[in-house]
Amino acid sequence: MSVEDTPDLTKLDDVIHGRLRLGVMAYLSAVNPASFAELAKKTATTNGNLSTHLSRLEKAGYVRQEKGFSGKRPQTLVHMTSAGRSAWIDYLSTMKQLLSNDLEI
């Protein structure tokens, strides 16, 4: 593979393109909303780490965190927004394009 055939990873949405944020977006694409505890368990990460990455996704407008209660216990629900869904679809399209170019070598 020559240098010019190498996929241009800079075209990817940097907000989504991180392992944990990618996982969060993937899970939310199927289960929306998901609770914070559910996301932490599914992604096998700490609450602090998940919180940091969710804040980044929220700042980009891709997710919305809703604080409430489940019975008497506090519960945070994480929603994928319509902007987040569009960004997720764009991300997958870009990734497909990049990897297809690579496979045509």
């Binding site: 190498t6 996929p7 990873l9 393109h17 392992r19 990618l22 996982g23 977006m25 993937a26 899970y27 939310l28 694409s29 199927a30 289960v31 998901a34 599914k42 992604t43 990734m95 690579d102």
Partner: peptide, 24 residues
């Protein structure tokens, strides 16, 4: 190397998405 990482990340995302879709 970076591409291998991307593929590994995509596999991870695919697993999570499938996990969500196949929720009992």
């Amino acid at each position: 190397m970076e591409q291998q990482q991307v593929l590994a990340d995509l596999e991870y995302a695919k697993t999570l998405a499938e996990d969500g879709v196949k929720s009992p």
